[in-house]
């Protein structure tokens, strides 16, 4: 099976997981959900690392890669930290 087809299998199955997991998220946490998905979509940082870290990468590719790493890191750090900050505010009634 060619690589692209394997990727397609993974993609379609992951879509099903996404569908079932996300419907289970409680509506009161929809804002943290958006922030958390912001953080994990920072996973494009892996692509950025691969472009930038390639030994043979030209200067243009390196500079593009640098900005991609920068933007994706803002997502990763900003996303997880702000999600944590929000979730810390959700408290039950103090007994």
């Amino acid at each position: 099976m060619p690589d692209t087809l394997v990727s397609l299998y993974v993609f379609v199955l992951a879509c099903f997981i996404g569908y079932f997991v996300i419907w289970g998220v409680t509506p009161s946490l929809h804002t943290p959900l958006v922030a958390l998905t912001n953080a994990i979509s920072g996973i494009v940082i892996i692509g950025a690392l691969l472009v930038t870290g390639l030994e043979e990468a030209g200067t243009t590719a390196e500079i593009m890669g640098f900005f991609a790493v920068l933007l994706a890191s803002i997502n990763v750090f900003g996303g997880f930290l702000v999600t944590n900050r929000m979730l810390a505010m959700f408290k039950k009634k103090k007994k």
């Binding site: 990727s7 992951a14 879509c15 996300i22 998220v25 958006v34 998905t37 892996i46 692509g47 691969l50």
Partner: peptide, 22 residues
């Protein structure tokens, strides 16, 4: 898909569906 990186594909699908369901 471009990088043949399954982790990116999985995460992309999860986030994509999250937004679509919202």
């Amino acid at each position: 898909f471009t990088l043949h990186n399954n982790l990116l594909i999985i995460v992309g699908a999860l986030v994509g569906f999250s937004g679509a369901i919202l």
